[in-house]
Design a protein around this nucleic acid. Structure first.
Lengths: 220, 220
DNA sequence: TTTTTTATTAAACATTTGATTAAAGTGTTT
DNA sequence: AAACACTTTAATCAAATGTTTAATAAAAAA
């Protein structure tokens, strides 16, 4: 008796792939992103990625040529995703300065709660190639010529806030938002916090940071 | 015409190496510290350390058994050196709270200007062994039961400063001090700063941070 | 001085790791 | 069903890397 297995198998196969919802290429990229973010470039082995992705090691090189090429893609996408929110807020010419600070705190604390490894990953890997990508992405202009900066300097001129180097302002804002995530093991260690308690503390900061930042801008 | 180069070269070499007056063991440790701080554990090759130290590769294992053992020593000493200053300031029961904040800013900005790689190094490597060393060094009690914390809670009780989780206070203080060094490539990139300009900006923060911190503590 | 211990070196070793290849499988098109 | 492009696998290569060894030099002890 002939049984048309192939059709059934094909169906199953067809269902299997879309079931996981991702192509092999995407599986590799997702795995690579997770492992690279967690351990950085040097501590990551291509075999870690292959295992995490559930694929054969050779496929990594088949799709991406080399560990480095794959890393570059992940790095670029990660940076892009990370700075996108900043730029959108910074260059919105409708919102006030105060509102922008609020939005940065809100957006980034959520982003970082979901992806707490990204800042340390970016900062560590950025050390290796200092200028390359920073310049490439036009980050400088995007930030330093932003509507955000113009508003800041305007407020200084009007005497609404005290005159300091705008970088201090940006460092303080980003530091208050990002630093606890970069120093998460230390913060959790110091306060003996569970992951849940840590996240609750970060949620508190959503409303506190804007107040703190405003206070620092008034400082004589 | 014959020129006795060798003698001249030997003199130069002699000045370069043995003049330093350090033992082989110290040479290795100093080299290891420099390379580990710069590149982290995984990206560091034992051959990098040997070269930096100007010694034969085998001597590293002769003196320290393994790369990991050597790393543990450097890690421990680095942590100890880094947190020593904090603890001394935090547990001084003579100085006021304000004075302690001032001293933290002063001491750490100098320390970090001289050793800008330490924070990222510590934070990156601490991620691998989350609890181990933090607990080992008794950091929790050293900070959370410090005179500094008692003063903070006393001031809250007296209504001098607003009630927040003390961790927010510590995060903000340490973040303002440490974050620009962790994000140094980004800060320098954003502001298009030379190393000298970066350091000048950090010097400014010595006096600004205490003011900012005081302002945040008054926030409703 | 002779002997013993310590320090140093060049070479080799064993394993890890990024990358390649050859062959087979799979679905689609002709 | 033949040709094809694409996908997957197992085996393997070659370089990198932490570690060890065996021989030698230097220093200390006898």
């Amino acid at each position: 008796m002939f049984v048309p297995v192939t059709a059934a198998i094909r169906m199953k196969v067809k269902k299997d792939k879309p079931d996981s919802g991702e192509s092999t290429e995407e599986k590799i990229k997702n795995a690579a992103r997770a492992v690279f973010h967690d351990k950085g470039f040097s501590a990551t082995r291509t075999r870690d990625i292959a295992e995490e992705a559930g694929i054969n090691l050779a496929l990594l090189n088949y799709y991406f040529r080399s560990k480095e090429k794959l890393f570059d893609i992940i790095m670029f996408e990660t940076m892009q995703g990370f700075f996108k929110s900043i730029f959108e807020v910074f260059n919105n010419d409708i919102t006030t300065l105060d509102k922008k600070v609020e939005l940065i705190a809100l957006n980034y604390i959520d982003l970082l709660t979901a992806n707490p490894d990204i800042p340390l990953f970016l900062l560590s890997e950025l050390k290796t190639q200092p200028e390359a990508l920073v310049a490439k992405m036009g980050m400088r202009d995007m930030v330093m010529k932003s509507h955000f900066l113009k508003q800041f300097q305007q407020s200084v001129k009007e005497g609404k806030i005290v005159a300091i180097h705008p970088l201090h302002f940006i460092i303080n804002l980003m530091g208050m938002v990002i630093f606890p995530f970069v120093g998460r093991p230390m913060v959790k260690g110091l306060g003996n916090l569970s992951q849940k308690e840590f996240e609750a503390l970060m949620q508190e900061r959503k409303s506190l940071i804007p107040k703190w930042i405003k206070a620092t801008l008034k400082v004589k």
